[in-house]
Amino acid sequence: MLRLRNVSRHIGGIRAVDDVSLDIPPGRITGLIGPNGAGKTTIVNLITGMMPLTAGSIHLGGTDITRAPAHRICRAGLARTFQNMRLMADETVIDNVMIGFHRHDRCALPAALLNLPSARRMTATLRRRAAAMIAEFGMERFAGFPAGGLSYGHQRRVEIMRALASDPAFLLLDEPIAGMNDVEADALAAIFRRLAAEGRGILLIEHDMRFVASLCDHVHVLDGGRLIAGGRPAEVLRDPAVIAAYLGG
């Protein structure tokens, strides 16, 4: 369970996130929706240690990760994608995915410094696993392409592969289907379902309500940094407060 308790973050005078408590259970896809500027991305930044909290606490399983540095949080089993994609633009797709394996990229320091056989084997293994994952996402053709030259939809998939490479227990997806067509989105939906079935907890941030409703059992609604509703997608989307939040912008 990924547990947020009374989490707040103030930026300048703005309460970007204000007293948010929510649980992200394993094996489920939890939705987080809200109008632009509601604070969704900020919550992901807080969970992944990219930004310090103003108040509150975050626990992953039994461990307190409230103040842990970002790389520790990753090693504790958390991965994310970025809404404004952050790929290494000049590097190939496979190299971008390989960096996602960093958590498992182990070999003794001398071996790494001198590229001894054990280090070479490690590189070969990771390259194979990255290639397999790229094939699974239907992108073999682009494996040797610089990531910066790909379409939005493809770049999003590279982001997801890179996050998955660390084999996270919890995956935070910030608008993963923005810029994709329906066919691509459906393919991803199937993958997300499978990941949840494997026991991973997923937090899905999306503006496409149809997509959210089809995947999530539980949806939280954020507006002005505060949670204003939560429950089954169908109920939540009928909630007058939620409708008002979206219409009121």
Partner: peptide
């Protein structure tokens, strides 16, 4: 040259 090809090079790059 060697370091470039291992986890170190990959991490430095990122």
């Amino acid at each position: 040259w060697a370091m470039e090809r291992t986890r170190l090079g990959r991490a430095f790059n990122a």
